[in-house]
Amino acid sequence: METEEAGGETIVMSQGVFVFQEWLDIVNKVGVEYYPERTFPKGYPEITEGGLEYKFEYNTAKERKILGLTYRSKEESTRDTLKWAAERKL
């Protein structure tokens, strides 16, 4: 990824903060579409009940403005990964 406008800039590249439990919640929500016979680890879903309040977030304004980057959501990424694995019978 190179663009002249990024020369000499420090750019934070991140979709955002998360706790691992969010991924487990999503896998349990969408995983049945690709693995109906499988049970996924539940973790501690009470951690994410009612939403999360993050103590910090990354300023990604330069990333969007200079590089034009956007990210897929956690759910899209998880769904795509599970679909990819299921197609390969993993």
Rank of each mutant, 00 (worst) to 15 (best):
G50Y: 05
T70F: 04
F20V: 01
V17A: 12
V17T: 11
Q15M: 13
G50R: 12
G50D: 05
A6C: 08
Y58D: 08
L52Q: 04
K83H: 11
L67G: 08
Q15W: 11
F40D: 02
R79Y: 06
E37N: 13
G51A: 09
R88N: 12
W23H: 10
N59Q: 07
E75T: 12
P41A: 12
L69C: 00
S73L: 00
F56I: 08
K42L: 10
T78D: 00
L67K: 06
E37W: 03
E63T: 07
M13Q: 00
W84P: 01
F18P: 01
V17M: 14
T78V: 06
G68Y: 03
V27G: 10
R72E: 02
D80P: 15
V27I: 02
Y58N: 11
D25V: 04
P41E: 00
E22D: 03
E76N: 13
S14E: 12
Q21W: 14
F40T: 07
L82T: 01
F18L: 14
V27F: 15
V27N: 10
F40Q: 05
G50A: 00
Y34M: 08
Y44A: 05
G16A: 13
N28F: 00
L69Q: 01
Q21C: 10
Y54H: 04
R38F: 06
R72I: 01
M13K: 11
E53S: 08
K55V: 12
F18H: 15
G68E: 15
A61C: 08
L24K: 15
E87L: 07
R38S: 10
K74N: 10
Q15F: 12
E57F: 14
E4Y: 03
G43L: 01
F20H: 07
P36L: 02
T70E: 15
N59T: 04
R79L: 09
T81F: 11
A61W: 12
E37C: 08
Q15D: 04
T78M: 02
T48K: 05
E63L: 13
N59F: 03
K55M: 06
P41M: 00
E49A: 15
E57L: 12
R38E: 06
V12Q: 07
P45S: 03
V17R: 05
L67E: 03
I66S: 07
F56V: 09
E76S: 07
F20N: 11
K29M: 00
E49Q: 03
T10R: 15
R88M: 02
R38V: 11
G50H: 05
V30W: 12
W23G: 06
P36C: 11
M13F: 05
Y58R: 11
T78L: 02
K83T: 02
V17W: 14
F20W: 10
E4F: 00
E87C: 08
D25P: 02
V19R: 13
D25M: 11
E57Y: 11
A6W: 13
M13P: 02
Q15C: 14
T39S: 05
E46H: 11
Q15N: 00
L82V: 01
T81Y: 14
T48R: 14
W23V: 07
F20R: 06
E5V: 10
E49R: 05
E57T: 13
